[in-house]
């Protein structure tokens, strides 16, 4: 099985490295794919006609989505994911530096499964990643 189970949509290189490091520290051997902006993310999932761009079996188990993305914002990407029938049920965790309640409300309204503010403290950061993985992938794994 070559398709990635975790998709990280994040433009900040340092955040990508920190998430990857945390996954490594947690010894999680899932295939991870990093998408660097909103356009790249949209193209990964959908073709120009709005249909699914990849095999239904190739859909990931978890999407970590930043809101502040170049070109197309994270909220737009979230909207596209939650409108489409095939991708609607994918768990999308918003992982952002914004603590604005307006962002929080918009995300939940569009169907985000979780909204987490990136903490400054690196220990906390690690703990967040651990909890996200445990909750969204670990639980699914035990269910299967």
């Amino acid at each position: 099985m070559d398709s990635p189970e975790i998709i990280i949509i994040e433009d900040n290189y340092h955040d990508v490295e920190m998430i990857s490091d945390a996954l490594h520290e947690l010894r999680i051997n899932k295939k991870v794919c990093v998408l660097r902006d909103g356009v790249e993310a949209t193209k990964y999932f959908f073709n120009s006609a709005g249909g699914l761009n990849l095999n239904i079996n190739a859909l990931p188990k978890l999407i970590l989505l930043d809101l502040k993305l170049p070109k197309i914002s994270g909220l737009e990407v979230l909207k596209a994911l939650k409108i489409n029938k095939e991708t609607r049920s994918l768990p999308v965790v918003i992982f952002t530096s914004s603590d604005e309640s307006s962002d929080r409300i918009s995300s939940y309204n569009l169907g985000a499964n979780s909204y987490l503010v990136k903490p400054l403290d690196a220990d906390e950061y690690f703990a967040y990643i651990r909890d996200i993985i445990n909750y969204w992938i670990g639980m699914n794994a035990t269910a299967q």
Partner: peptide
Amino acid sequence: SHDLRAPLRAIDGYTRMILR
């Protein structure tokens, strides 16, 4: 405020990695 947080997060993150 937002943009200042990112480098700080990185500093803390890398420092933690070095210490580990």
